[in-house]
């Protein structure tokens, strides 16, 4: 698989996932280089009232620790972030996180649309959005916004998803750049990392 758009202009990767995405996420986090240059910002649907355990479970598999950011924390290169339980996670223009307890969006808090849309406004064409397996349409509008702002969009191949509602919803409303298996998403991210090392 060759990726035409790979270059070192990107400044962040944002990943959305829900039901059936845990395995894919852990595969990705365990197979990227430790020196992966960009921040990876993840918004994954999770139990609202279980604050602890999820970040730890992801950290065990990940090549670098997963961080649940505090409100107004700055986004740093090469770190892996996860939206905390029961908060929406926005990305502000100055590349800081802003959390919120506003109403659920698409029945979800954190909502993937909120994280994706606000990252798109903040990073514009310097953003890569990846949407994985999931059982509702949260994230579809976010992916559309990323595309409209000139960012690069990738969805997990619906054929491979445990539940394909989420990537399918995104594909329906946006011309997504790549539809990839988890294996190829990993290849993509490794290729991408190489562009930053020279």
């Amino acid at each position: 698989m060759r990726f035409a758009d790979i270059n070192d202009s990107y400044r962040a990767v944002v990943i959305g996932g829900s039901a059936g995405s845990f395995q894919g996420i852990t595969k990705i986090l365990s197979n990227i280089p430790e020196s992966f240059p960009l921040p990876i910002i993840m918004c994954l649907h999770r139990l609202k009232h279980v604050r602890n355990g999820f970040m730890e479970a992801l950290s065990i598999k990940s090549v670098k620790p997963v961080i649940e950011p505090y409100d107004k924390e700055g986004i740093k290169k090469g770190k892996v972030y996860l939206a905390p339980a029961n908060y929406h996670m926005y990305i502000e223009l100055g590349h800081t996180f802003a959390l919120s307890t506003e109403s659920m969006v698409n029945n979800s808090r954190p909502s993937i649309d909120i994280t994706l849309e606000s990252s798109a406004y903040s990073y514009k064409q310097r953003l890569i959005g990846i949407l994985l397996s999931g059982a509702n349409k949260d994230g579809a509008i976010g992916m559309k916004t990323i595309k409209e702002k000139g960012g690069l969009t990738i969805v997990q191949d619906p054929a491979e998803c445990l539940i394909d509602t989420m990537p399918t919803a995104a594909l329906r409303i946006t011309e997504i750049d790549y539809t990839l298996s988890i294996e190829n998403i990993i290849k993509f991210l490794n290729e991408l990392a190489k562009k930053y090392s020279n």
């Binding site: 929406h88 926005y90 990305i91 502000e92 223009l93 802003a98 606000s118």
Partner: peptide, 9 residues
């Protein structure tokens, strides 16, 4: 006010 969430509201 924090801009992104204010804007959304």
């Amino acid at each position: 006010y924090a801009m992104s969430s204010f804007k959304r509201r």
